[in-house]
Amino acid sequence: MFCTQIIKPGNEDSFKPNRSDICRITYEVKIKDGGHIVEKRDQVKIYLGDNEVLQGLDLALTLMHEGEECLLQISPRFAYGETGLKTGESLGLVGEIDGSKYEGPAIGPETWLEARLELHDWKEEPEHETLPIAERMEIGTRRRARGNWWYGRGEAQLAVQLYRRALDVLDESDGGITDPTPSGELTPASDALKALLDERIRVHNNMAAAQLKAGAYEAALQAVTRVLQCQPNNAKALYRKCRILNAMGRNSEALEAARAAAAAAPEDPATKKELQRCEQKANRDRSVERRLAKRMLGTSDQPKGSSPDKKPSRTKMLVWGSFLLSLLVGVASVIVYRYKIQSH
């Protein structure tokens, strides 16, 4: 990625924005040499460094002054990567929960893009505790939606980054819902705070899936545990807990979680399949344990009347050998004794 032209200089006396600053931008992204418009947004607000826009745009903004407009050439690495973008796929535009669909020709892993980018202004991110609940909800939801987009593209690490940023603004402040009471019930709260809790639970659940995909099993287990603390019968969380425990080799705990998930969502095919897989693994584990125990105790799996294995055959031969040796020694003793009598 590199800047090919500064279309309009910015205020060079102003500072450049930093990570997490709120930037108000206008941009248009086209396929280089093709001219087809991929994305176009006007006066949109983004949080710098959150990958709410293409990485090429995100990086370019850190080098721009307020009011600057430039033309960029964006390499595939900082655009749609090796996955590319197919016709009909979601663009994952920030602020759009459902997501606009791409309607142009397929963008391959080697497709360069051209972007026109303008930084109107920027400001520092405020303390989350000072924001109204409705605004915190809006920010957290948009970050979750963008994280889902990255997760769907196989970018688990970028998804985790967005989910963590969502939790930054959704986590509790004074007067909010904290932990369940000893009875398992949540403390009384307003509808707005309950909605905030529900959104936070969705983010933790999604983050557990992304961390599992990234191989961060301990972190994934912590995320799913937070969900189950508030919603013990959350089928999605129980299913993901099962998969996480399986990946960690904790098979008996995984089976317990799978049974709980199946009880919470008895008609869900994925949950049924996971339970069957766990039960089959448990049966294999028990079979292996039985074989090991019998080997340690020296017992045999052979049924009565069947041919003995090699170990009993050797024992039997040794017994017969000892018996015959004793018999021969006895006969020899008698012969020697008679010989001596005749000599005298």
Rank of each mutant, 00 (worst) to 15 (best):
D179G: 10
P180V: 15
T181C: 10
T181L: 14
T181R: 01
S183W: 09
S183M: 06
L186P: 03
L186V: 06
T187K: 08
T187M: 13
P188R: 11
A189I: 08
A189P: 07
S190V: 12
S190C: 08
A192P: 05
L193G: 00
A195H: 05
L196F: 07
D198R: 09
D198N: 15
D198H: 03
D198A: 15
D198S: 14
E199V: 14
R200T: 08
I201S: 03
R202E: 10
R202T: 11
V203I: 14
V203W: 04
H204L: 13
N206M: 05
A209W: 06
A209L: 13
A209E: 07
A210M: 07
Q211M: 09
L212Q: 08
L212N: 09
L212E: 07
A214R: 12
A216R: 14
Y217K: 09
E218D: 13
E218V: 08
L221S: 07
Q222P: 03
Q222T: 15
A223K: 01
V224A: 02
T225A: 15
T225G: 14
R226W: 15
R226I: 11
R226H: 13
V227C: 15
V227M: 03
L228R: 08
C230A: 14
Q231Y: 08
Q231I: 01
N234S: 15
N234Q: 15
N234G: 10
K236N: 08
L238T: 06
Y239S: 07
K241S: 09
K241E: 13
C242E: 06
R243Q: 15
R243M: 15
L245E: 04
A247G: 11
A247P: 05
A247H: 05
M248I: 01
M248L: 04
G249N: 06
G249A: 01
R250Y: 01
R250K: 12
R250W: 07
E253A: 00
E253C: 00
E253I: 02
E253V: 04
A254G: 13
L255F: 03
A257N: 03
A258C: 10
A258S: 14
R259E: 06
A262C: 13
A263M: 05
A264R: 00
A265E: 04
P266D: 14
D268Y: 07
P269F: 08
P269L: 10
A270N: 08
K272N: 10
K273V: 02
E274R: 05
E274N: 09
L275M: 14
Q276F: 10
R277H: 12
R277W: 02
R277E: 12
C278W: 00
E279Q: 13
Q280G: 02
Q280I: 04
K281T: 03
K281A: 15
K281N: 04
N283F: 11
N283I: 11
N283E: 14
D285M: 10
V288H: 02
V288I: 07
E289F: 03
